[in-house]
Amino acid sequence: MSVALVTGANKGIGFETAKQLRELGHVVYVGARDVERGGKAAASIGARFVRLDVTDDASVAAALATIGADEGRLDVLVHNAGVLGDEGVDGPAALRVFDTNAVGIVRVTEAALPLLRKSDNPNVVTVSSSAGSFWAVTNPDRPEFRLPLALYSASKAAATMLTVQYAKSQPGIRFNALEPGTTATDMTAAFGIGRSPQESAAVVVRLATLGADGPTGTLRDEAGELAW
């Protein structure tokens, strides 16, 4: 059985991704900051809970140490934890958004690499956004053109670049970034838009279960590779 870790998985796309991977027979670890909510979410789908705060080095190290001790490897890593950062633009806000959306990817990836290298078919998926695509935000025909989320967009551009750079430095592991589609979650509630998290999670799962001949170092949506 394949072993998967999904960060920020107690709700939204992360929870649905964990659920669908579990339904496919994976051993799934639900990573979340809140022990009570994360534990309940994991129990509801027959997954395992591991406390994981992507902004805390000790938390990340402990979570991956637990998975390593229990499983000995990691086959699928989904970077799903993220924040919108719509509370205004200043230094502290920028640090908070980038710490979660970009630096968190570095923390978790670096801690996970030894376990991913032990997998026969390692896949890493970053739930990024086309809001971080220069092509999209400068194209008047795209909805991202009018999205007033500077810190979110900039941090997602960083998340996608990290994905590409990891793909180059770790050729034995597939790294892909994903635009999951506009999804109705707690994060987008203020906008009143989006499809169900189940639909977007299905896109994540397809990318997380790629075969050895699958792409790496790309930003994709359900239709294929995106310019960015």
Score class of each variant (00 low, 15 high):
Ala167Thr: 05
Thr209Arg: 08
Leu116Asn: 04
Pro140His: 01
Val83His: 08
Glu110Leu: 08
Val83Met: 06
Lys19Ser: 00
Ala9Ser: 01
Tyr152Thr: 01
Ala61His: 10
Lys156Asn: 15
Ala136Asp: 07
Gly12Lys: 03
Gly12Asp: 10
Phe15Cys: 11
Val3Asp: 02
Pro148Asn: 10
Arg22Glu: 11
Gly181Glu: 05
Thr183Trp: 07
Thr109Lys: 02
Ala154Val: 05
Leu151Ser: 03
Glu199Trp: 07
Gly72Ile: 10
Leu95Gly: 09
Phe175Trp: 13
Glu179Trp: 08
Val50Cys: 02
Asp86Phe: 10
Glu225Asn: 11
Ala202Ser: 06
Ala202Trp: 14
Gly46Thr: 06
Ser129Asp: 13
Gly88Trp: 02
Asn10Ile: 07
Asp99Pro: 11
Ser155Leu: 11
Val204Tyr: 03
Ala150Asp: 14
Lys19Val: 03
Ala184Gln: 05
Leu74Pro: 00
Leu64Tyr: 04
Gly181Arg: 02
Asp70Lys: 12
Ala61Leu: 08
Phe98Asn: 05
Ser129Val: 04
Ala190Lys: 13
Lys156Phe: 05
Thr55Asn: 09
Ala63Gln: 00
Phe15Ser: 01
Gln170Ile: 15
Gly214Met: 07
Ala131Met: 09
Leu115Thr: 02
Gly104Thr: 06
Phe49Met: 04
Val78Ile: 14
Asp34Tyr: 04
Arg220Cys: 14
Leu219Val: 08
Gly31Phe: 03
Leu178Phe: 00
Asn139Pro: 09
Ser200Met: 05
Leu116Lys: 12
Val6His: 11
Val205Gln: 10
Phe175Glu: 02
Arg142Ala: 14
Gly217Lys: 03
Ala58Pro: 14
Arg206Phe: 11
Ala111Asn: 04
Val203Asn: 05
Thr209Phe: 02
Gly68Glu: 13
Pro92Ile: 15
Thr209Val: 05
Gln170Asn: 14
Ala150Val: 05
Asp186Trp: 12
Met161Arg: 06
Ala167Ser: 14
Ala93Glu: 07
Val30His: 00
Val204Ile: 15
Glu144Leu: 10
Asp99Ala: 08
Gly132Cys: 02
His26Val: 11
Asp186Phe: 15
Arg195Cys: 07
Ala43Ile: 04
Gly38Tyr: 01
Phe15Asp: 05
Ala159Thr: 15
Thr183Arg: 02
Thr163Ile: 07
Ala190Gln: 15
Lys156Cys: 09
Asn139Cys: 03
Gln20Glu: 07
Val83Trp: 03
Asn101Glu: 09
Arg73Lys: 13
Ala157Cys: 04
Leu113Thr: 06
Ala81Gln: 04
Ala223Asp: 14
Ile105Val: 10
Asn121Gln: 01
Phe145Lys: 12
Ala42Thr: 11
Thr218Ala: 13
Met187Asp: 06
Val54Met: 13
Gly8Lys: 04
Gly12Gln: 05
Ala202Gln: 10
Pro143Ser: 11
Leu24His: 13
Ile67Met: 08
Gly25Arg: 12
Leu77Tyr: 11
Gly132Ser: 03
Thr218Val: 15
Leu52Asn: 06
Leu178Val: 01
Ile45Gly: 01
Gln165His: 13
